[in-house]
Design a protein around this nucleic acid. Structure first.
Length: 716
DNA sequence: TTCTATAGCGAGAAA
DNA sequence: CGCTATAGAA
């Protein structure tokens, strides 16, 4: 072997790549080249240690990261492909394991199962709430689905009996639909490994080397999966950074990475502390911020990139002014940068609106990453529901979605009839239609429509067997006149919807060329798609500014980064300032955002902002006071001499650390507690003094307008 | 059964 | 403010 696998790596990276067997924890700071280390490590195992690709499992956080990893490894190996090497996300790896062996669990799910995304799960819950007359229940479908997810992850019993019975129906319906939700993917895999010995043995034997990226964001179930899979060979190579753990709401726990060295004996820790991404001013500012956290192992990031500019801070009077500042700065800097060198990062998706409007005005090309994803769009889900139903006729959610879309005269009554047949005979809806038609028990009106529907699905299945996926979809769009259906609606987005369905055909074509003509694997990919996957898509090939949440920006880097809305209420978010550990995660979130920047970093905020269409006053983020002022340059914005901005900032920095101020006043954004209504957030106020009225959104009782004097609201 | 207008609610991050 | 669920008319 005349090629040195470690060339171009620093000492620490080499140490990690060449490490022998055993459990390793690679603590790798932002921009320290961890993807590189994993790719080199895989190449090293294959080339130098003669490990079979069959014995390696590499888990990444997103599909995009998995693809990048694959490409890097192939390049290092100088090959076109490496068969049997598993690189994928936890969810996709689990889906793959389940496709082979789920039938062994004997839970009534076969290998053609459909993966329900959150939206599918939600419509299932809504349906159950309606049917079972839980309407007086105060929980919304999304609250319930989140609650179920939490329970599934934690594995605890259900305390609430109503929720408990909804949960039972939900689980039953999933099985009837031959479907699994996101949590099931992980949970059933765990069950499979725990309960079926030969499956467990198969994978324990197989995966001699397991590599995990973004380890700080694993949840309990993933943690247990790893522990079982690695039990025989004990070779886990975990790469992560506790300071970048930002998925607590999805069940990830910093604890896993922080306590890993204590959990097993002889864990080797390697720290990657050289940052190759950012100028030192950016790095120092970000490090100073995150050093306020307690739950960390600690590290000292450093860089060779000296002499950069300070980070910039701008405070606008309105979100509009803030967006203008961002746009004008981009225009100014665009002499030296491409548009795709800029990223605008934010805490919540809703913040993108002001930015989008301004960018449209000022003719700045942009792409929103995340938010409503391509495959979550109504038109795409409609079309794919036909395919899903043809492949998996048990899929209730897909069936109900399209039975009358486009309208073919199948209304509430007809649907209720087939649902009754389905329930009474305990057969899937699809069969209920068939039987109902054969026995002529259905009322006349719906019969011919149902026949048409049945025929379409059956023909779709035939076409799937005969044609390529892209051809099937093109045929289907014509067959059901879907374009006419969109056309006939008074929908302001109808043009883009029509565009989208043909874009789906193109996406399928591309998939066929790369991955072969298998619809099921396409659907699986689609269900497990992540935000970042859009960055490989057609629209991102245009030179455009990328606009996204910080969560979506994880793992990415950009020459120029703007973080907007650096305010109390976003950093930390209103909902996350109750517990110290939540505040720490919010701090990490800002840290992750800041460390995306290579050359220039702008933090911006606004004194006022539209929330729910109301103007709300905002304070700067308390985290700003944790960044030493010497790293910050305050800018006035485009219109010079905005004395006010300056003063606001000065005041803020001087008064500075009044972190716990937690406003003594009832003002928008304040969290309050009411004796009967429970916890809520103040949306707006009217009047003052004796007549002060507060408009509060309670999490369990919705919006209420209360007279402050009488309501006796406790400010949390 | 379908179409249309509007009330009312909502948005924290996502595989 | 923007989306959607729903009520009521056609």
């Amino acid at each position: 072997m005349n090629f040195d696998i470690t060339s171009g790596l620093n000492e620490k990276q080499k140490e990690a790549v060449l490490n022998g067997d055993g459990r390793v924890l690679v603590l790798s700071g932002a921009g320290s080249g961890k993807t590189r280390v994993i790719a080199h490590r895989i190449a090293y195992l294959l080339l130098e240690k003669g490990v079979s690709p069959y014995s390696i499992l590499s888990v990444t956080f997103t599909n995009k990261a998995a693809n990048e990893m694959k490409e890097r490894v192939l390049k290092l190996l100088n090959r076109e492909s490496v068969p049997f090497l598993w690189i994928g996300t936890f969810h996709s790896v689990c889906a793959r394991i389940l496709r082979d062996d789920i039938e062994k669990l004997k839970i009534g799910i076969d290998k053609h199962f459909t993966i329900f995304d959150r939206d599918d799960s939600k419509s299932l819950i809504k349906k159950i709430l309606k049917e079972e007359k839980f309407s007086e229940e105060v929980y919304s479908a999304s609250e319930i689905i989140e609650y179920f997810s939490l329970q599934k992850r934690g594995g605890k019993g259900y305390k609430n009996t109503v929720l408990n019975s909804i949960y039972e129906i939900y689980s039953k319906r999933l099985i009837e639909s031959n479907a699994v939700d996101f949590d099931d993917l992980l949970l059933f895999t765990l069950k499979l490994l725990k309960e079926i010995e030969d499956v467990r043995k198969k994978y324990q034997e197989r995966f001699k080397y397991i590599l995990v990226d973004e380890y700080q964001d694993t949840n309990d179930i993933q943690e247990e999966l790893l522990s079982i899979l690695s039990q025989k060979w004990k070779n886990t190579f975990l790469v992560g950074d506790e300071d970048q753990s930002i998925y607590g709401f999805r069940g990830s726990k910093v604890r896993h990475i922080v306590e890993f060295p204590k959990r097993y004996e002889g864990v080797k820790i390697i720290r990657l502390e050289q940052n190759y991404r950012s100028f030192d001013s950016i790095l120092k500012a970000a490090s100073a911020l995150v050093s306020h956290n307690t739950e960390r192992l600690g590290k000292n990031l450093w860089t060779d990139r000296r002499g950069g500019e300070k980070i910039y801070f701008f405070s606008g009077l309105s979100d509009r002014e803030e967006a203008n500042f961002v746009a004008d700065t981009i225009n100014k800097l665009s002499e030296n940068y491409n548009f795709s060198n800029f990223a605008v990062l934010m805490r919540t998706n809703a913040q993108s609106r002001a930015v989008e409007e301004t960018f449209l005005n000022k003719k700045i090309p942009y792409q929103i990453v995340g938010g409503l994803k391509f495959y979550e769009r109504k038109e795409i889900k409609d079309i794919l529901a036909y395919i899903k139903l043809a492949i998996n006729p048990y899929d209730r959610v897909s069936l109900l979605r399209i039975i009358n879309t486009p309208q073919r005269g199948i209304g509430k009554t007809t649907i209720e009839e087939i649902e009754t047949i389905s329930r009474e005979r305990e057969i899937p809806l699809f069969n209920a239609i068939k039987e109902g038609l054969e026995e002529k028990t259905l009322k006349l009106r719906g019969v011919s429509s149902l026949q048409t529907f049945l025929k379409i699905i059956e023909e779709t299945l035939t076409k799937i067997k005969e044609l390529k996926p892209s051809e099937v979809v093109a045929w289907l769009i014509n067959e059901i006149s879907y374009e006419d259906y969109l056309e006939s609606h008074n929908d302001p987005n109808k043009e883009s919807r029509i565009e989208n369905i043909w874009q789906l055909v193109s996406a399928l074509k591309e998939f066929e060329e790369k991955e072969g003509a298998n619809f099921e694997s396409f659907l699986e990919r689609q269900a497990l798609q992540s935000d970042q996957d859009e960055l490989n898509g057609e629209s991102s090939k245009r030179d455009s500014v990328k606009v996204m949440t910080i969560h979506s920006a994880k793992g990415l880097e950009f020459p120029v980064v703007f973080i907007i809305g650096v305010e109390d209420g976003y950093f930390p978010h209103e909902f996350s300032k109750m517990k110290e550990e939540e505040i720490e995660e919010e701090r990490r979130l800002l840290y992750v955002g800041m460390t995306r920047a290579m050359d220039k970093l702008f933090l911006t905020n606004s004194r006022t902002r539209y929330i729910y269409g109301n103007v709300v006053e905002r304070d700067p983020s308390p985290f700003l006071a944790e960044i030493p002022q010497k790293y910050i340059e305050k800018v006035y914005g485009v219109e010079a001499g905005k004395k006010l901005n300056w003063n606001i900032l000065e005041d803020f920095f001087e008064e500075g650390k009044e972190f716990g101020r937690e406003n003594q006043l009832l003002k928008p954004g304040a969290r309050v507690c009411h004796k009967t209504y429970g916890v809520g957030v103040v949306l707006s106020t009217e009047g003052s003094g004796e007549n002060l009225k507060v408009n509060v959104s309670f999490s369990r009782f919705g919006r209420k307008k209360l007279l402050a004097k009488l309501a006796k609201l406790e400010i949390l």
